[in-house]
Design a protein around this nucleic acid. Structure first.
Length: 918
RNA sequence: GCGGGAGUGGCGGAAUUGGCAGACGCGCAAGACUUAGGAUCUUGUGCCUUCGGGCGUGGGGGUUCAAGUCCCCCCUCCCGCACCA
């Protein structure tokens, strides 16, 4: 980026060079003086002399970034700047504000880079963090640097491991609906033999090892959580195929918290869209289990049981083999058998067919129902009808009981299947005539349903559930879509499990005193990967090759013995499940957070009954991953008495994305966006050649990256901050437009000029009183800006400040009584220039703790009001009326202005307008 | 398919929740200062107009003295979920 000093610009103009000098100076000042250190109630970060010690608090949090090698582009800091503006504002408004930044630094990219180059992931990670810190410092973010942590710090992941052990050493007690220490379960089972007790205890832990169908990704050489697999069956990272297969893995019993994770959403100040996504992800369905000849099905529509004319089991359902007879029953339709000689052959063939389908094919085929009769029948408990049992892949093994009663009359999928396999269709809800020839899912009176006839859906459900329970045919039930969280990864760059195995293969926790379990150095960081479609490959963890680390002699209370360490590592989500708590007490070696500090910063309050962070800003992409996992961990910590809040993040706000235009030439090759010029509206040219424009993410591949470094150099950090905050509402995505940044610069230049003579550098403010109309504007702006900043409406706050500045520009000299509040109001958005001007105005202290201006109500009322006068809905005149005038006077003035003496109707809206119907 | 959100000048976006549509900024135009302008400043800028005014918030209808805002129908785009019984 060329940076030509503007030789002829006035010496004291607010140019990029001037901005950069000011910014460097104040960044040094803040760092040196610890300006943004937030005092804790107790511990090493307590400071009783701090102006905000013991004041009401605000914990303002960003979703911490992964420090990638590519560095930041202008899209990344949007949320960081937003929280910074809010944090600075709240600090000036009297709050003790905790605002800092950490790094989510475990993860795949550093590991993959390590595999390629041999550089240790820690080296790469630390370099990237340094680079990130530089970039963030340049933006003037008011962080408390003492509280910054990286998830890869040994001193940090020691506590991640400790929390894991809390989870491992607890169980969910359904009768109390909370997690309890495992020792309490052991005590309850004290009468049992040790072996049996261990078995039960291990089966109840919240973190447990299980042999279960998991997502195995040979291309990455690791297993993945459901949340990390895309809907077309590929890995979110790398886009490799993922296969379901049974492997022994660590799981977290998040399903125990399904109800609380749904119900507690009501206590949170989150966007409804995110709450909805979490509710859908957990997927609670209320209905009933019904037993059909010993096969249990789940249904949300037990009221339709009289219409169940067949059953369908998932192809993998465990009852199938038991049920399949040797021969086909007599007189069945040909299509039921799939042309196979025996049911056993038909089942085997169908299973092979279904298993061979990829996730993509399964979805593409969703509308064409396939299946096969297994040769057996069940009895519908409601009407004792004999109904055939099918297997079909439209019934999923992983949901409900893996078996359904098929009610084609009231279910579209069952209807389609019934049509293909010529199965009877019995309607049990009276459909409107428009539903001729298709299933009806709606409301209506029951028909063909025996004792339910005439009842509407809700009443019929209730009736049939009590009938089922009375007769032992089933019970009311709730099921969930959420599965337990697959928690182990076959990677290197993650937290080691604090778990060892004895000679029987039993898992033991490493005692707290032996934490942290440090990652060993290894020569080869790569998990063993395979051909991307090699579904039968076996995972091999990098840590398993560190033989001398794996084998360890410990005394776990029964003398020294040899144990083998767990060689999986935790998923990247682990560190982000609790980092905000460590910010509160980053150096505590006795505890992951001191309880008093925890209560002060994130405890429950009347305004936030859940407790938790006061404002959490980040992208929507974490709607179900990080935010669900973190809530789960937090609830476990709450149940075990380690935290006083039952939710980690009370208020959530999703910032939008900054996107950018990209350009391609006639061959479709991306050209550097920076070099494209718009010759005419809609005509874009690069190197003399016409190019086409598209719109998308900022990134290397689209050659449209703009970095904050570049913007700071060309305009200064304050201008960059003002621009990002004024582009639009924080939660809306918008296109980046470097051309438009100059508007923010001009604004700051005007503010500067209002205080400083560009030629001489003299401060030029006047101490005489300001004109009353400017004072009115000032107080209107103060009231507006306060409200806007508190509501995160930064774009309108900036526009109000510009208005005030423009009014100031029109005066010959700037009155101090306007300039000083303007500078203070500008400070959250453009802190460096504001500090500089504040100092030039004669103040010795940083303005970071100066009270934010408060509007004087006396100036908020106008002396006179100009009323638009509408006649039949059109504005025909304006009248100026004293603010104190009553309705009659306003009405008289309005009628006079439009010369109407006998109107049909007159509506006077005081303070707004007059509307006349003539 | 189901669920959620959004459509306002050439562009980004405002509009105290039913009360003067287009604040503020970019761009554009004219002017000032300049050797110069991709710097800065000033003024103007929704569209049409016979200069009276008319038309305008995705389209169509409605309620109202008054609709971007409320109601009904339709269109488009974005996001999430996707055979979840």
């Amino acid at each position: 980026m060329e940076q030509v000093e503007q030789v002829d610009a006035p010496h004291f103009r607010y140019t990029a060079q001037m901005a950069n000098r000011i910014e460097a100076r104040w960044q040094d000042f803040w760092a040196k003086n610890g300006t943004f250190h937030a005092p804790n109630p107790v511990g090493p970060l307590a400071d009783t002399r701090h102006p905000r010690y013991g004041a009401p608090k605000r914990f303002v949090l960003d979703m911490f970034p992964y420090p990638s090698g590519a560095g930041l582009h202008v899209g990344h800091p949007l949320g960081f700047i937003g929280t910074d503006v809010y944090a600075r504002f709240e600090r000036m408004a009297g709050y003790n504000v905790l605002h800092t930044m950490g790094f989510d630094a475990f993860g795949l990219p550093a590991e993959q880079y390590a595999v390629q180059t041999g550089t240790h992931p820690r080296t790469t990670t630390e370099e990237n963090i340094i680079r990130y810190r530089e970039q963030l410092r340049m933006l003037g973010l008011a962080h408390d640097p003492r509280r910054s942590v990286a998830t890869t710090d040994v001193a940090y992941y020691r506590w991640t491991q400790w929390i894991f052990l809390q989870i491992f050493n607890s169980w969910y007690d359904p009768s109390e609906n909370r997690a309890r220490p495992i020792s309490e379960l052991e005590a309850q089972l004290a009468h049992l033999p040790a072996d049996e007790r261990r078995k039960i205890v291990d089966s109840r832990r919240l973190a447990y090892v299980s042999e279960a169908p998991v997502n195995w990704c040979p291309g990455l050489g690791t297993v993945l959580a459901n949340e990390e697999v895309t809907s077309d069956g590929r890995s979110e990272r790398g886009n490799f195929p993922v296969f379901k297969r049974s492997l022994k893995q660590w799981m977290m019993r998040i399903t125990a918290y399904s109800d609380r994770l749904i119900d507690d959403l009501d206590t949170l100040d989150w966007p409804e869209a995110i709450k909805l996504m979490q509710r859908n992800w957990i997927g609670r369905s209320r209905g009933a289990y019904i037993d059909f000849s010993g096969i249990r099905v789940f249904t949300t529509r037990p009221d339709t049981v009289f219409g169940a004319t067949y059953m369908v089991l998932a192809p993998e359902h465990e009852a199938v083999d038991r049920l399949v007879p040797d021969e086909w029953p007599a007189d069945i339709p040909r299509i039921w058998t799939g042309g196979h000689a025996t049911p056993r052959e038909a089942v085997a063939a169908y299973r092979e067919f279904a298993a061979g389908k990829s996730e993509v094919e399964r979805q593409a085929d969703a509308k064409e129902k396939t299946g096969v009769f297994i040769g057996a029948y069940a009895v519908n408990p409601a009407n004792e009808a004999r109904i055939p049992i099918f297997i079909a892949d439209y019934v999923l093994a992983g949901y409900g009981t893996g078996a359904i009663m098929a009610v084609p009359g009231q279910d579209e999928r069952d209807w389609e299947f019934a049509e293909v396999y010529e199965l009877p269709i019995v309607r049990t809800v009276e459909p409107p005539s428009s539903f001729e020839g298709k299933a009806y899912l709606g409301e209506g009176p029951a028909i063909n349903s025996g004792f339910l006839d005439g009842l509407h859906v809700a009443a019929a459900k209730e009736q049939i559930i009590s009938w089922l329970e009375e007769h032992g045919h089933g019970e009311g039930a709730v099921t969930y879509r959420l599965r337990d969280w697959l928690f182990s990864r076959q990677r290197y760059w993650g937290e080691p499990f604090p778990i060892v195995y004895d000679e029987h293969g039993h898992a033991h926790s490493v005692p707290d005193s032996m934490l942290p379990v440090e990652l060993p150095d290894v020569a080869d960081f790569s998990p063993k990967t395979f051909a991307i479609d090699d579904a039968d490959s076996e995972p091999e963890t990098p840590l398993s090759r560190a033989k001398e680390w794996v084998e360890v002699t410990l005394d776990l209370g029964d003398g020294p013995k040899v144990y083998h360490r767990e060689t999986n590592v935790m998923p990247q989500w682990a560190g982000s499940c609790w980092y905000q708590l460590r910010y509160l007490d980053p150096t505590n070696e006795e505890n992951f957070v001191d309880p008093e500090n925890e209560r002060y910063w994130v405890g429950q309050t009347p305004q936030a009954v859940s407790g938790g962070v006061d404002l959490y800003v980040g992208g929507v992409e974490h709607a179900v991953l990080h935010l669900l996992y973190a809530r789960f961990w937090h609830k476990v910590l709450f149940d075990l008495g380690h935290v006083s809040s039952f939710e980690p993040y009370h208020r959530l706000y999703n910032q939008g994305y900054i996107q950018a235009y990209a350009y391609r030439d006639s061959r479709g090759v991306v050209v550097p966006a920076e070099e494209v010029v718009e010759e005419q509206p809609g005509i874009y040219v690069w190197n003399g050649e016409k190019v086409s424009r598209e719109y998308g993410k900022m990134g290397k591949s689209l050659k449209n990256v703009v970095t904050p470094d570049e913007m700071c150099e060309r305009y200064g950090a304050d201008t960059f901050r003002v621009y990002e905050m004024s582009m639009g509402p924080l939660d809306v995505s918008r296109p980046w437009d470097t051309r438009a940044v100059v508007g923010a610069q001009r604004f700051l230049q005007r503010v500067w000029r209002a205080v400083v003579d560009e030629e001489t550098g003299e401060v030029t403010v006047a101490d005489e009183p300001a004109p009353v109309e400017v004072k009115r504007l000032l107080h209107k702006v103060i009231a507006g800006v306060r409200e806007d900043l508190a509501e995160l409406r930064f774009n309108t706050a900036v526009s109000k400040l510009i208005e005030l500045t423009n009014a100031l520009t029109k005066l010959d000299t700037s009155p101090r009584e306007i300039v000083e509040p303007l500078v203070l109001m500008l400070a959250p958005v453009a802190p460096h220039i504001s500090e500089e001007l504040w100092q030039k105005l004669g103040h010795g202290e940083s303005l970071a703790y100066v009270d934010f201006p408060v509007a004087d109500p006396a100036y908020l009322v106008e002396e006179s009001v100009t009323y638009p006068v509408q006649v039949n809905g059109k504005v025909r005149a304006r009248v100026e009326v004293a603010a104190s005038a009553d309705e009659a006077a306003i009405r008289a003035a309005a009628l006079g202005a439009v010369s109407i003496s006998d109107p049909k109707k007159v509506i006077v809206v005081p303070g707004r307008l007059v509307s006349i119907v003539n």
